[in-house]
Design a protein around this nucleic acid. Structure first.
Lengths: 231, 231
DNA sequence: GCACCACATTGATTTGGGTCAAGGCGCGGT
DNA sequence: ACCGCGCCTTGACCCAAATCAATGTGGTGC
């Protein structure tokens, strides 16, 4: 009976930073010639939940959030995407999330039927897509565990480490957080005040420091990891 | 900007009860001739997290739980499976969950490489598998919203309705809950006492009645739906 | 029948984090 | 420079659900 600690390997979408052997090259790069560039400004919506899924995208620069809205106006941020991530590859004809720009962003846009044709014709692309969806699913389950069993401190610690791991500047001790406190709260299932308080606590412990509001130094990564996986 | 109420359409695995046009027939039924029957007793483990994923399965009778264990001994039940559901079709070589029997269960077991061959050779099977994984992913996100934003009452109401919808006896007002309170708690991110208290509250309101501990009558389905999607 | 055991219920108490309310800080516009 | 606005931080208070602690119940084996 194997026990698993909560890992941060969650891949919200395929990311070039991840060099698992079979995914070193993204077979969907072949679509680039058929795509066109689009841009979205900070705060703008790329597409809304329920929109016709005519296109799918690759994020080139900037960052996005994938959002579900609830009838009472509450918001759940399901994923943050960073450059290199793919989105809109749902297998339904409607987008399941809204996609909104966290920062100004540039994307490559492909007609979805081209992507589908590629999936149907190229077994490598098909396998790639399966393993991508499967990674996303695993990431979602990790998050579920986080939301069910982890305290505010553990969530934030885990979030900082996840962001640090995903960012291009991999090993660096400085994490840039393009999103607001409110975005973080809606991603982790907390309120903005709690996010803020926990960051203050971590700062007072000397585990992190804040270069600026959106730029956080991981002073003591080991402690942060201890906090993230505390009993 | 479309707003979505939390739906209960979550499909944890493909279920024959769901008759979306393209999935009326499960293409993996073709594997039945290559499979063999296995049984697991209540409480027994079919496979553990991290086990070599040599086989995948179709649940014929009984019910299972898919579980992740945490380093501190906490448990997250990621899905409950009922007859007709598929499991173990991960695209990795190791099982991502443990699968345990909630009740005595009978399964059809297939060598995983046969399933993979089918996926690679039969585009229908491939599409089926993609839409299955995609449904699972959407179900996981629904659960995430539930865990982030819903009260104990809302969770239980939602759970009862989900169980009612999934069970074969579809429209019936009686839900059989094969799992214990502890299982329900670990599925919904609550503790067993709270599950018990909420069920008592719903009973006192006259929304449900309990034929026995594991058999619940939905007296007033409308109220239950109101509670499940309360603002 | 009775004892045992696992599971469920109920009650009393505590607490983490949500809510409400009041500033603070930084940045863009005029 | 100053103002205004969006975002962040901090403090005081409160409440839903967790924890701690019995007690109830139903099924199985002797």
């Amino acid at each position: 009976m194997l026990q698993t600690a909560l890992t941060r390997s969650a891949v919200t979408a395929w990311s070039p930073a991840l060099n698992t052997p079979q995914s070193r090259k993204n077979p969907f790069d072949a679509l680039d010639t058929q795509g066109m560039r689009v841009t979205v400004k900070r705060g703008q919506e790329l597409y809304a939940e329920g929109d016709d899924a005519a296109y799918c995208y690759k994020l080139l620069t900037g960052s996005l959030r994938l959002v579900k809205l609830m009838s009472d106006g509450q918001r759940q941020i399901c994923e943050f995407l960073i450059s290199g991530d793919l989105l809109g590859f749902e297998s339904q004809d409607e987008h399941y999330f809204s996609a909104e720009a966290v920062t100004d962003a540039v994307l490559m846009r492909y007609p979805r039927r081209n992507a589908e044709r590629l999936i149907n014709e190229d077994p490598t692309a098909a396998r790639f897509m399966r393993s991508l969806t499967s990674s996303n699913l695993q990431g979602a389950y990790e998050r579920m565990v986080l939301l069910c069993h982890k305290s505010a401190q553990e969530r934030i610690a885990w979030f900082l480490l996840e962001m640090a791991d995903r960012s291009k500047t991999g090993g660096g001790t400085c994490v840039e957080l393009p999103m607001t406190r409110s975005d973080i709260a809606d991603y982790l299932g907390m309120v903005i005040e709690t996010v803020s308080r926990v960051l203050t606590q971590l700062r007072q412990k000397g585990v992190i420091a804040m270069k600026s509001v959106n730029s956080i130094l991981l002073i003591d990564r080991d402690s942060l990891e201890d906090i993230a996986s505390a009993a």
